[in-house]
Amino acid sequence: MMRNIAKKIYILLILFFLYAPIVTLIVLSFNKSKTRSKWGGFTVKWYGSLFENEAIMQALWNTLLIAFLSAAFATIIGTIACVSMQGMKKHFRTICLGITNIPMLNAEIVTGISLMLLFISLGIKFGFLTILMAHITFNIPYVILSILPRMKQLNPSTYEAALDLGASHIQAFFKVVFPDLLPGILSGFLMAFTMSLDDFIITHFTKGPGIDTLSTKIYTEVKKGIKPEMYALSSLIFVSVLILLLLVNYTPKKKKN
């Protein structure tokens, strides 16, 4: 009994630690005063002016577009890579997987500067495209890592059976292999999307002067003072993700992994 109470208190303390800053931000989004150290009364005006703030809206659009495109490209490249790795010799496969893991295990700052050096020497203009390419690069490993376990469970005989029964390679892939891989592909896509959304360090090194994502915009604002609209936007994002996760969690599960 005592033990159970101690456990609950411990969890509550950790939760308090994790959520204190988030509650702070949500409270700040309702703060009438523009400075964060003073409480000037309750207001929802920042939620209104948020949508009129073109710079923030542009940054939000950039962030979402880059997250979506990079996740989509990474998913396509990653899925093809997983399928092709199946047929590789074991040795070569290990090397491939090793290379895949580099951006995940390496420090983000090193990945960031290495890509920056690459883009400079290739003479590519820094901007939307460079951010997108950088994001695809660090997203691919997350996609591969979520598809590979599914790949291992796959029974190769089903694919061969489909071929025997007259399907072409492409038909056999899309009708037999793909449905089995789909959960892995979807979770890989979601993971990539999340990673891209939250990235700051790599974007910081690969973005040009004219373009901002939410992260880089916040970073430049930290010194000058963050606009209250930013708190409002993050609160909105947080609450919508919370609702989404609760919905996903309470829908009946099809199978246990």
Binding site: L18, L25, T194, D198, L214, S215, I218, Y231, S234, I237
Partner: peptide, 8 residues
């Protein structure tokens, strides 16, 4: 919590 921007 990771869904709230890490800088914020």
């Amino acid at each position: 919590p990771m869904w709230m921007n890490f800088l914020l």
